[in-house]
Every structure is written in structure tokens, then in C-alpha cells.
């Protein structure tokens, strides 16, 4: 289990996270949602160790991550996979080299074993023929799939995704969402997604955490979203007419 307990993070005078706590479970896809500037990215960056919170604890299966020395953190980091908003693929490497990179750095597998593992994960993300392409030759959706392949090639226990659908058309976004959900269940990992894509919330949100002004304003499942009367959540989730109608229809059915 991944536990975040009362974390605070400030930049100068700006208090970005004001005591956020949450728990994330294995085999479930959890979404952190909220408006731009609500602290979602800072929250996820604190969890993966890119930022150090001033207060609070982040515990990966009872191992308190923040406060550890860099060498000890490195061990936990090997269990973390991350998909970045812009994919963050290494421009100078081909798809195959990008995916193989963590294996080269952290395993003593032979070249053949590494290639097998790479080809397995690339097939898993439905990109069997892209091995020798460079990131500049890929579409946005393909880049995201390579980023997912790279994130799972080390068979992580924890998968973090920062806005995996940003910049993608709705159809590709659904493909990426489904892929993340399938991988989460198949590998039985803890997946945390930072998103403001309401389709993702409705499709794959086993658990949803709503952040507002650096605080956790609401928590629930995707079904709870339809039932909640929390004003902040309703205003955020149902800001579009389409979702307002969906909610009304759902409530009528109830």
C-alpha cells in the first residue's frame, strides 16, 4: 500500500500542499484531479521523490520514502515507473533503446534477454514495429505508449502517470486509459494518475481524490462522483454541459 500522510509543501511564500493525506491500493487505478494550480503535480512529484515535502510522510509498503538518504531512496525508485505529461523520451535514443535503458542501468541481463523483455512490453502496449524509430518520428499517442512501456519494463510495484492524456485526441486517450487500467490489474500494481480529463475519471477511476487549493477536498469512487453534493467537485466535474446532462440522467435512474 502507498500511504501519503499529511504532506505540506511550499515554494517561498506559496503554500502549495496543505496537509494532504491519501492511501492507494494494489490493483487499483487512483486518479488525482483538480483545477490547474490545485497542487496535483506537486503532489505527484512529492510522491515520486522529485520534491521533498517539508512535513508529512510518504510510505511505500511501510517504507518511509521521504527523509531517506539518496542511496536508500534509489532502491525504492527502482520499484517506481513514471509516465510523464510530455512522455520524456530520450531524444537521442530509439524506441528500443529508450525502453531498454532502465534494464541496462539496473539489471545484469544479457542483451538477448533485454531485447526479449523490450519486445514483450512493446507488444503489450501495441507497438510491435516501432523499435528503430526515434521519438521525433512518433505521434503523441505512440510516444505515450513507449513511455508506458519504459515505465513497466522493470516490472514496477508503483506506476505514476502525470496527465497521460494531455494533448491526445479522445479516441487515443481512451486507448491509453484502458492500457493503464489493464496493466494495473494484470501486474497488480498501485497506479496513481494525475489528470483533469473527465473521461479518464469516468472510465478508469477506481478511486478519485479531488484537490482544491492544496487540500484534499473530496475522495470517492467514480460512482460516488454522480451522487456527491460537494460543491467544489460538482463545479469542477460538471463544468461542461455534457457531464451535467450525464449526471442528471444518472440521478434520474437512481
Amino acid at each position: 500500500m502507498l500511504e501519503v500522510i499529511n504532506i505540506h509543501k511550499s515554494f517561498g511564500d506559496a503554500h502549495i500542499l496543505k496537509g494532504v493525506s491519501a492511501t492507494f491500493e494494489k490493483g487499483k487505478t487512483s486518479l488525482v484531479i483538480g483545477q490547474s494550480g490545485s497542487g496535483k503535480t506537486v503532489f505527484i512529484k512529492c510522491m515520486v521523490g522529485l520534491l521533498d515535502p517539508e512535513e508529512g510522510e510518504i510510505s511505500f509498503d511501510s517504507r518511509i520514502f521521504n527523509g531517506l538518504k539518496e542511496k536508500e531512496k534509489r532502491q525504492i525508485r527502482k520499484e517506481i515507473g513514471m509516465v510523464f505529461q510530455g512522455s520524456a523520451l530520450y531524444d537521442s535514443m530509439t524506441v528500443e533503446e529508450n525502453v531498454m535503458f532502465p534494464l541496462k542501468m539496473f539489471t545484469s541481463l544479457s542483451k538477448t534477454e533485454m531485447l526479449e523483455r523490450v519486445s514483450f512490453v512493446l507488444n503489450r502496449v501495441h507497438l510491435p514495429d516501432a523499435n528503430n524509430k526515434y521519438p521525433s518520428e512518433l505521434s503523441g499517442g505512440m510516444k505515450k505508449r513507449v513511455a508506458i512501456a519504459r515505465a513497466i519494463v522493470m516490472r514496477p510495484k508503483y506506476l505514476f502517470c502525470d496527465e497521460p492524456n494531455s494533448g491526445l485526441d479522445p479516441q487515443t486517450a481512451i486507448v491509453i486509459d484502458n492500457l493503464i487500467r489493464e496493466i494495473t490489474q494484470e501486474y497488480d500494481i498501485i497506479t496513481v494518475i494525475n489528470s483533469h480529463d473527465m473521461n479518464s475519471v469516468m472510465e478508469i477511476g477506481d478511486k478519485i481524490i479531488f484537490l482544491k487549493d492544496g487540500e484534499k477536498a473530496w475522495e470517492g469512487t467514480k460512482e460516488d462522483i454522480f451522487r456527491t453534493d460537494n460543491e467544489a467537485v460538482v463545479n469542477f466535474v460538471y463544468s461542461s454541459n455534457l457531464y451535467k446532462k450525464v449526471r442528471e440522467a444518472y440521478r434520474k435512474d437512481m
Partner: peptide, 8 residues
């Protein structure tokens, strides 16, 4: 960031 998250 991707390098550092991997522990590099």
C-alpha cells in the same frame, strides 16, 4: 526528471 525517478 525521468532519469532521477529511475534512481540515476
Amino acid at each position: 526528471d525521468a532519469l532521477e525517478i529511475m534512481g540515476i
